[in-house]
């Protein structure tokens, strides 16, 4: 199979104006990936599936990754020289910048017909709060159907063009997205509003007020 850089160049030639870049993986696995812009993602996916040299007919794994906002510190080191040109000391200048967070969707593609892979695709949302839409690849590979629903459920990515985008593992009334890094568990998972809440509220008026506990006693002492 061609290298990822060759594939990127071929995609850029085939889809002018598309955003395609290679994301390198520094680890020993060296499974590098292609980062796609949302505009051409589905067309490129379709091309990867149908291209006779690639035939990536199996989408094995779909998952999300949450990248929260991150403070990045850049250090610039400037050597201070004396008249003879020797280094006296090194000035360190630190600047911090904020890398805005985003949600990432990762697709692992393989070819059953030609037995190669994986080609890894990545899509990114604009941010983590209000612009969390990404194009759905379910029309290209049916395998994405449940897995994209899971990413929607657990990460909160809204897939544009998904046929049945509902929660899949959490229950429908659940509000948050538990796989996000900043998710805080509720105190009581089991609580849910009951239709008799107002009745119970009214019923409180018919019971005697709560007995004078330690708090009431301290009030008396103060007076």
């Amino acid at each position: 199979m061609e290298t990822l850089e060759q594939l990127r160049d071929r995609l850029l030639a085939r889809f002018p104006g598309a955003e395609v870049s290679v994301v390198t993986n520094p680890g020993p696995a060296a499974q590098h990936s292609l980062l796609l812009g949302p505009a051409h993602a589905r067309a490129i996916a379709l091309f990867l599936r149908d291209d006779p040299a690639l035939k990536l007919d199996q989408c094995s794994n779909v998952t999300g990754v949450d990248w929260p906002d991150k403070q990045i510190t850049d250090t610039v080191r400037t050597p201070v020289l004396d008249a003879a040109g020797a280094t006296v000391r090194i000035l360190e200048e630190k600047t911090t910048r904020l890398r805005p967070g985003y949600l990432e969707i990762v697709y692992h593609l393989y070819s059953i017909a030609l037995r190669h892979g994986p080609v890894i695709l990545r899509l990114r949302t604009t941010n983590r709060t209000d612009q969390v839409t990404a194009p759905s690849l379910t029309p290209v590979w049916r395998a994405c159907e449940f897995q994209e629903r899971e990413v929607f459920d657990l990460f909160g990515v809204v897939f544009d063009g998904h046929p049945d985008l509902r929660r899949i593992l959490m229950w429908p009334e659940f509000k948050d997205h538990p796989m996000r890094k900043d998710y805080v568990e509720p105190d009581d998972y089991e609580w849910e509003p009951t239709p008799h809440g107002t009745v119970l509220e009214k019923a409180k008026g018919h019971y005697p007020p709560p007995a004078a506990g330690p708090a009431a006693k301290t009030e008396e002492l103060k007076n």
Binding site: P26, G27, A29, S60, N61, V65, H108
Partner: peptide, 24 residues
């Protein structure tokens, strides 16, 4: 502590392809 990077490993389990995707 693995070095920063990511890996997807899969084997043929009795039920099908079982894979783990890890980012370090």
């Amino acid at each position: 502590r693995p070095k920063p990077g990511e890996a997807y490993g899969r084997i043929e389990g009795p039920k099908g392809e079982i894979g783990f995707y890890l980012i370090s």
